[in-house]
């Protein structure tokens, strides 16, 4: 049983004319076994939350804390956070020319598991995971994300998720740019990960469509750099009908991070 706890998180980015505050006091607690959806309009700071948790150097934490089972995540380097059990599936996975997917996956598994996986079982494991996600085995020899289509990149993010088995996964708009079939394949991958262990998921999305495949336990509406409403899965249904207008116009501050 693990807990990811975000308390009073304020985050800024460098912008013309000084730092610009994007997150304005986020409070959120995710326990293993739970799936939380974070929904919000563009520019509400959803992705900033994801990158800040993962430790991207562009984002400066100005106040608040993020802990994983009481450990201060913010004091850790990016790779230490990953080894502690955090995973960020990125909206725009980065191309790393010259490094093969196979080599990358093995290096990541070695780092996260603390020892190099046994070669024979590892090859089998990767093959099985690729097969589950309808990934052609040839991709193992290609450079990391290089020349991959948007859908291929997302599948590979979920492939890493399934191999690294983090305690908490933050999925940043993993559904964006996917066609119906790819969305199903990717969602099934996430559901296998959820079923495979005592893990927690923070699912960031703009659309409700992925929530028909991955049922959330809790839905948070994000606007103006913080959580403005929290409810059950039914809140997503309401957003589906009425959109975000109620949260952006009434009460919420101006959208940030545009």
């Amino acid at each position: 049983m693990s807990t990811l706890e975000i308390t009073g998180l304020h985050v800024s980015v460098a912008a013309e004319g000084g730092a610009k505050e994007i997150l304005k006091g986020v409070d959120l607690t995710v326990r293993s076994g739970e799936t939380h959806a974070i929904m919000g309009p563009n520019g509400s700071g959803k992705s900033t939350l994801a990158y800040a948790i993962a430790g991207h150097p562009k984002y400066e934490i100005t106040a608040g804390s993020v802990t994983l089972d009481g450990q201060d995540i913010l004091a850790m380097t990016v790779d230490e956070r990953a080894r502690a059990g955090l995973f960020l599936a990125m909206q725009y996975p980065v191309e790393v020319p010259g490094v093969s997917m196979a080599n990358f996956l093995r290096s990541a598994a070695t780092a996260v598991r603390g020892e190099a996986p046994k070669l024979r079982t590892w090859v089998k494991e990767v093959k099985g995971a690729m097969n589950d996600l309808d990934i052609d085995p040839d991709f193992a020899e290609r450079s990391v994300n290089e020349g991959f289509s948007g859908g291929e990149k997302k599948r590979h993010e979920v492939l890493q998720l399934s191999l690294l088995q983090p305690k908490f996964a933050v999925l940043d708009e993993t559904d964006s740019g996917l066609d119906v079939d790819a969305l199903r394949v990717v969602s099934e991958g996430v559901n296998r990960y959820r079923a495979g262990g005592d893990v927690g998921v923070l699912l960031i999305t703009h659309y409700t469509r992925i929530l028909q495949h991955i049922r959330p336990d809790v839905v948070h509406v994000f606007a103006g750099g913080k959580v403005v409403s929290t409810g059950g899965a039914e809140l997503a249904d309401e957003l589906e009908r009425n959109g975000y207008a109620r949260f952006t116009s009434a009460g919420a501050e101006t959208p940030a991070g545009v």
Binding site: V78, D79, A82, M90, V96, V99, A111
Partner: peptide, 19 residues
């Protein structure tokens, strides 16, 4: 690129060597 590799648990020096 460094952030991406590190976000998968790979330490910076290993990431650089890998590349």
């Amino acid at each position: 690129q460094l952030f991406y590799l590190q976000s998968r648990g790979i330490p910076e020096d290993v990431a650089r060597r890998l590349v």
